[in-house]
């Protein structure tokens, strides 16, 4: 329990440090840091209905982030969640188009399966390249993100193009209302249920299956696992596929829920925020639920800020960037501080 407490304390400290850095930037830019933070907290969590909006953004982020956690735990830095998210949404959109007219109880599950398949496929090739020939998955999955963005532009401007569109942003035809599992103005219980059940399944996978323990060991010391006779191929590939599949499901959720259609370049930071959530949560599934709520709140605050208080939404991006900076920097000083702290606590 002690170590968990330290983990939480650590994540909070990183966030506080990041916010301290942000307030300096805000002040330098001529804003009142206090006013900004007040508006952000207000917009994210306190104002009427804020929690609903936070949840709306948190649910898909959570789904993608638990996928990221599965691959990171196995030692594979799949940073292609964004691309897998797009390809998942594209597969789902094609499926909806193809099955258009069929009853919803067929179309909706089919779209989810297609979305998971699309995301998994977009993680499959970097996974194979990594495991067969050792190609660095950081590079390949990153490239995969750009490719997926371009494919999305092509699809929304080509095969799935909405002819009645304004021309400002290429997008697909809106989904038939019968197939929507949520909308942009109220919270969808279906989406929350999907997120919770996927979270539970992944928690069981990580903590209560042989796969969870073996992939965790392989992530920290692959040589040892090989000397125990494991073939890293199957464990590694499974991590890639699960990771991509979850991002694909998140893409499907966005398509069939709040968005209702595919638009070129929609939610361009989704996958990266999910990685941030995974890191802030220290690769714990339960931690990711909390972290997703926090970042979901920030995302909804980004919409609220300019409208309600006339403050720039980019403040949220600065906060995200600062947290990323601190969480990835692994400050030596902080680690020293925490190791000292843990010794004290033990006594």
């Amino acid at each position: 329990m002690n170590t968990q407490f330290i983990t939480i304390f650590r994540a909070l400290s990183f966030i506080l440090l990041a916010l301290a850095l942000c307030s300096l930037i805000f002040i330098a830019a001529g804003f009142s840091a206090f006013e900004l933070f007040e508006s952000i907290i207000n917009g994210a969590f306190l104002r009427n209905g804020a929690m609903k909006h936070a949840l709306r953004w948190a649910a898909p982020l959570f789904i993608t982030s638990i996928g990221v956690i599965i691959s990171f735990r196995a030692g594979y830095f799949n940073i292609g969640a964004q691309g897998q998210f797009y390809i998942g949404a594209i597969f789902a959109a094609f499926t909806a188009e193809w099955l258009n007219g069929s009853p919803a109880f067929i179309v909706v599950p089919a779209c989810f399966m297609a979305g998971a398949l699309g995301g998994a496929l977009w993680a499959l090739w970097p996974g194979l390249l990594r495991l067969k020939s050792g190609a660095d998955e950081v590079i390949t999955t990153l490239m995969g993100n750009f490719l997926a963005s371009l494919i999305l532009i092509y699809v929304t401007g080509g095969p799935l193009k909405d002819p009645s569109g304004s021309g400002q942003q290429a997008s697909s035809r809106p989904l038939d209302a019968a197939y929507r599992i949520g909308n942009s103005y109220e919270l969808s219980p279906t989406i929350i249920m999907i997120a919770i059940s996927l979270g539970l399944i992944m928690w069981v996978l990580a903590n209560r299956t042989a796969f969870g323990v073996v992939s965790g060991l392989a992530g920290r010391n692959a040589t040892m696992v090989e000397w125990q006779g494991a073939k890293l191929m199957s464990v590694g590939l499974a991590s890639f596929l699960i990771s991509g599949g979850l991002a694909g499901i998140a893409g499907t959720v966005e398509l069939m829920g709040p968005n209702g259609r595919l638009a070129a370049g929609f939610l361009p930071a989704h996958g990266f925020t999910a990685i941030l959530i995974a890191l802030v949560a220290n690769l714990s599934i339960a931690g990711a639920a909390v972290a997703a709520l926090f970042f979901g709140g920030l995302a909804s605050a980004a919409l609220y800020l300019p409208v309600m208080s006339g403050l720039p939404a980019s403040a949220i991006e600065i906060i995200n960037a600062a947290i990323a900076l601190f969480i990835t920097a692994k400050s030596k000083f902080l680690d020293m501080f925490f190791s000292l702290g843990s010794i004290k606590w033990k006594k």
């Binding site: 209560r208 042989a210 796969f211 073996v214 125990q228």
Partner: peptide
């Protein structure tokens, strides 16, 4: 436990 876990199917349940 890894030796035992590897003798099971990959996705089988364990009792930590």
């Amino acid at each position: 436990s890894i030796r035992k876990y590897l003798q099971k199917p990959t996705f089988s349940f364990i009792k930590p």
